[in-house]
Computed example of a mutant assay.
Amino acid sequence: MDWASFVVPSVVAITGMPAFLLAGMLRRGNLGALPRLVARGYVRPEALARRLSYLLMLVGFSLVAGGAGLLWAGSDEARTMAVAVPLVVLVNALAIAMIVTVMRAGRHHGTGRQ
């Protein structure tokens, strides 16, 4: 294997790092880390932040595992497809889970004050 075969798996694994960073920020209850999510607008912002943090950690781990899988696949097209297809499905399913989580979160009605 030459160095070029490490580029794509490395890029896939590195793209998981922002998910870990954002998950860490949310784990501390910082909903302001996400645009358009304001903590005072939700009934239980800590629970929402924990749930989103958990889902983002799963996205990060999926991308790192996908990078390792692509490294294992090498130039074998069948192995590459066996890694890439489940990776795409998993990351998209987690994105849908995040959207559903935000949509199900209880919001305050009215002025936003309690």
Rank of each mutant, 00 (worst) to 15 (best):
L34D: 02
P35Q: 06
P35A: 08
P35K: 06
R36V: 10
R36P: 03
R36E: 06
L37M: 08
L37T: 09
L37E: 07
L37I: 08
V38R: 15
V38H: 15
V38M: 12
A39R: 15
A39T: 06
A39C: 11
A39H: 12
R40M: 14
R40F: 14
R40V: 12
G41C: 09
G41W: 08
Y42E: 10
Y42H: 09
Y42P: 05
R44I: 07
R44P: 07
P45E: 13
E46A: 15
E46L: 13
E46C: 11
E46T: 15
A47V: 13
A47C: 08
A47P: 07
A47G: 14
L48V: 09
L48Y: 06
L48A: 08
L48R: 04
A49P: 07
A49L: 08
A49C: 11
R50G: 06
R51N: 05
R51G: 03
R51P: 02
L52S: 02
L52D: 01
S53D: 07
Y54H: 13
Y54Q: 11
Y54D: 09
Y54P: 03
Y54I: 09
Y54R: 12
L55M: 05
L55N: 02
L55H: 01
L55A: 02
L55S: 01
L56F: 03
L56P: 00
L56C: 01
L56M: 05
M57Q: 13
M57I: 13
M57V: 15
M57D: 08
M57S: 13
L58R: 04
L58Y: 05
L58N: 04
L58G: 05
L58D: 04
V59P: 00
V59M: 05
G60K: 04
G60V: 05
G60R: 03
G60C: 10
G60Q: 07
F61K: 07
F61C: 14
F61R: 06
S62T: 00
L63M: 09
L63F: 04
V64D: 04
V64T: 07
V64S: 04
A65R: 01
A65S: 07
A65T: 05
G66D: 04
G66F: 01
G66R: 01
G66T: 03
G66L: 03
G67A: 03
G67P: 01
G67S: 03
G67T: 00
G67M: 00
A68R: 03
A68C: 11
G69M: 02
G69W: 00
G69L: 01
G69V: 02
L70P: 00
L70G: 01
L70M: 12
L71M: 15
W72F: 14
W72T: 08
W72E: 09
W72Y: 12
W72H: 11
A73F: 15
A73C: 15
A73R: 14
A73V: 14
G74W: 12
G74E: 11
G74M: 11
G74I: 08
G74Q: 09
S75M: 12
S75V: 12
S75E: 15
S75K: 13
